[in-house]
Design a protein around this nucleic acid. Structure first.
Lengths: 137, 137
DNA sequence: CTTAAAACCTAGTAAACCGATAGGATTATA
DNA sequence: TATAATCCTATCGGTTTACTAGGTTTTAAG
């Protein structure tokens, strides 16, 4: 299941992308428009800034803006930052690999075999979709 | 992330499938061989029986056995029983649909759009794989 | 210079979920 | 009758989740 954090984060990025003005967008505006708890959203925006998706401007008239073009933001990257691994099991994760402490032999493991396929399928979809794709198409 | 319950459940089914003998397999045997807490596994086996994947025989010499042939057990079905919805968001789930309480318009929602694609990709993989595929191939 | 509006930061918290454990009751075999 | 297995219910510690509280800092505008 996708956490609300990730869901809200993607919605916020989408919201900013769809506003074609160059002015920064306030978290309060997004929170109202998208029905997201403001304080919670603030922490998410902060994370998105720290991970390089957003820039920010403090003070009156401040807000957040995209650092890259929507077409250059892959959804794999967004989800990895907000949600963590895309794989459903650590032992098939490319970026967060971890060996299972049960399971002596990964190659013999049926779960491993299956989850590699699921991972590849998901990776394929998320890698092909950019923020532009889901915001505008 | 896949829960241990689901992971253990799939491993247990695989174990039984790979034993070609007709005799029922004990939970204790599986728990030892696959390094799974016995009591925890017991509860999983029970669930797999109640949902129609396994039959059981009580008492001495008892155990669990597959009710259908491995090639007839789709992984979608197994995962839906043990893990719940395959979709990452309730609003794109086929079997466990739920409307988001934020989000007035699903068609305009970028998360919705993306997660439909992820769901279809996963569904495709899990629907094509049977227990036989992951146990023997 | 003051005020308001915004991001930024730290901490806490209620509820849910997870993985496991405890302790048996029931049933079947030998 | 003893033993071995499933079956059942309850509980529990730990972690995560989704959020809330309560500020501080920075900036722009009046």
């Amino acid at each position: 299941m996708l956490s609300k954090k990730t869901k809200y984060g993607i919605k916020a990025l989408t919201y900013i992308a769809r506003k074609d003005e160059k002015l920064p967008v306030q978290a309060s505006e997004i929170s109202e428009s998208e029905n997201i708890s403001q304080k919670f959203l603030e922490s998410i925006m902060l994370e998105l800034r720290k991970s390089g998706f957003l820039g920010s401007k403090k003070g009156k008239g401040g807000g957040y803006y995209l650092i890259k073009k929507p077409s250059e933001i892959k959804m794999t990257a967004v989800i990895r930052v907000l949600e963590g691994p895309i794989a459903m099991v650590p032992c098939v994760s490319l970026n967060y690999y971890e060996k299972c402490d049960d399971c002596p032999d990964e190659d013999a493991c049926s779960v491993h075999k299956l989850m590699i396929q699921v991972r590849d399928a998901s990776l394929n979809v998320l890698g092909e979709n950019t923020l532009a794709d889901i915001a505008f198409r």
